[in-house]
Design a protein around this nucleic acid. Structure first.
Lengths: 337, 337
DNA sequence: CGAAAAAATGCACTTGTGTGCAATCGCTAT
DNA sequence: ATAGCGATTGCACACAAGTGCATTTTTTCG
């Protein structure tokens, strides 16, 4: 009560008064396919323009869908996340949705709070890029008619739509690339984040190596970052037997790893050491790195999200899997013919 | 009419029915400081929990402030922009606001469309990180009681709050650093974006050099990106007289420039060439670059934004200027004592 | 020109909240 | 026991839109 916003928003009623018509006429002017004569439409538009009227989407959202989509995301500064947010907001906008970003931590409590916000704002759908929401809360969302789309989360939660890249394929292919390059002593660099995606890439890589009778030395560094990659390299090359081929479960890890391997241990890439990453962030293509990696096809993924939004009945289907695209650069020796 | 969302959101009325109280009691239970007895509050909370009730912030926004803040931004994948969005969403959330991101192009038409969206959703405020909205539209926002905060835009538009880093200081200081390192042939790398911020950094640098009787060769590359930095380096070192000290108006430009200078022209940094950037993106600190640059103090800037939001009367004040922080790394020779 | 069909318009209700006002409830003090 | 008083409670309205239905206006066609 202390202060109402003094210059209030202009409402349809004000426009109606000014144009000398009923409020319904104003509403219909801004509704596609509604029946309004050309004359009154002109009067209304003129008045609206003069007053600076804009339809209140909040009020509209009371009756029908709000057209709001919530994006729950952590670690937004990470290049891959930034690109995901960029692509998603773009495509969502293009399909008439507006994006609310909820910047969260990955712990369950933060994600839960984010999901509740999502419900508070009557979002048509929630897209989760980070963390794993508790099943009970997902059910609440679904019970309220809100779609839940999980990206790269692969917990298969009842009713939620799941969507992600094929991590197994990347793990297998990474091994293949390193073996073809003649690498004998393999290493795997992962983070302590233990995301389902990361774990799967790791697992498949190690298993595929075992199938060939090759051992893999697994190094678990800190969070998924450049610094963790550096730390991992210091640990790896401080040991007796150094690897000559490494799969880093993330490009950021790979870049940090490469920098330390080269600068602190004098290794040359790819002669002494081959490195494979995952994500294909922009920096992976920079001249200093030229990292061989797997691209997450973000545009197709975002298209898929939009598609799910427009056809909610598809949501119950199985997990949609998208193939990552191998990007060959210079951090792995070309295979012998 | 084809399909109403079949499992509709649960409303306060449903909770009231279940708890055997009036809808007002429900509303008051979720309103701080409202008068409800402990007994009914308990009944309401229980019913709300059982039904999965969540207050509709859209409806709440009809009467009072919506607590929505719109962020208008382009080039979100750029590291500096990603960090800005990250920090802003964080701080806004912490102060009880929710962020709508509008991903736009920098042209006036796109920005205008974004601003209108902002009005449609009754945002309390709009924060513009990219592009320059037309004055008339800003006035409309203000007339509707919506705050407009422009960051690093420094057009001084009537009524909007402006906020940005001190570009002049950076330009002067960059020259000082290079001169102290003994650089004689100076270059400046800029982009064709011609943002006010970029132009000012450039102008002050060139003027300060002129004041010392030193000429600066200005090279204008494409958009503000790593690739443009590479392109600029190829042009600069293809010419007869190569510079030995360069100020790149952006870190991304600087990193691309460094990579080409080193790899394609065999220069060593900082012995043959000193480089100064601006922004202090994460990559500037990576081992391959160690770029001397100026940090945009994003946290203080975001604090300032939140502050402006909470005290709208401050909005009319003059442009708030924040000092960038010099970050000394290895891309510039240390000055002679 | 007049009747029937078509188009345009306005009323009133709906969506989910918050809140002023009046009525009611419960407790204390005389 | 009852007046007095403060704490609860419910009614009804406001907020800003969309829309079914009935009514009015316009158009069309015989």
């Amino acid at each position: 009560m202390s202060e109402l916003k003094p210059p209030s928003f202009v409402s349809a009623q004000m426009v109606a008064d000014r144009a000398g018509v009923s409020r319904s006429a104003v509403s219909r002017t801004f509704t596609d396919g509604a029946s309004v004569s050309e004359a009154t439409r002109r009067k209304v538009l003129e008045a609206a323009d003069a007053l600076g009227y804009h339809v209140n989407h909040l009020a509209r959202g009371l009756r029908e869908r709000s057209n709001i989509v919530c994006l729950v995301v952590a670690d937004m500064t990470t290049p891959i996340r930034a690109r995901m947010v960029d692509v998603l907001t773009r495509k969502l906008q293009a399909s008439g949705k507006i994006t609310m970003v909820i910047n969260t931590e990955t712990d369950t409590e933060s994600v839960s709070a984010a999901l509740r916000q999502t419900l508070n704002y009557r979002a048509d759908a929630t897209v989760v890029l980070s963390g794993t929401p508790p099943a009970s809360l997902i059910e609440t969302c679904l019970a309220n008619g809100q779609q839940v789309i999980l990206i790269n989360r692969d917990e298969r939660l009842q009713g939620s739509s799941n969507l992600g890249v094929d991590n197994a394929m990347a793990g297998r292919e990474a091994l293949f690339l390193l073996r073809r390059a003649g690498c004998e002593r393999l290493g795997l660099i992962t983070s302590n984040a233990r995301t389902a995606s990361l774990v799967e890439r790791e697992k498949v890589f190690v298993e595929a190596a075992a199938a060939e009778g090759v051992q893999v030395v697994v190094t678990e560094a800190g969070p998924t970052s450049y610094e963790s990659g550096q730390e991992a390299a210091r640990r790896v090359f401080g040991r007796s037997e150094a690897p000559d081929g490494v799969f880093c479960v993330t490009d950021l890890l790979a870049l940090g790893f490469m920098d330390v391997a080269r600068r602190d241990f004098g290794l040359t890439i790819p002669e002494d050491l081959c490195v494979v990453g995952f994500d294909d962030i922009e920096q992976a293509g920079w001249a200093s790195y030229q990292l061989t990696t797997f691209r997450q096809p973000l545009n197709p993924m975002a298209d898929e999200v939009v598609d799910l939004l427009l056809q909610p009945q598809r949501a119950v289907s199985e997990r949609r899997m998208i193939e990552p695209i191998p990007v060959w650069r210079r951090s792995v020796r070309p295979g012998k013919p």
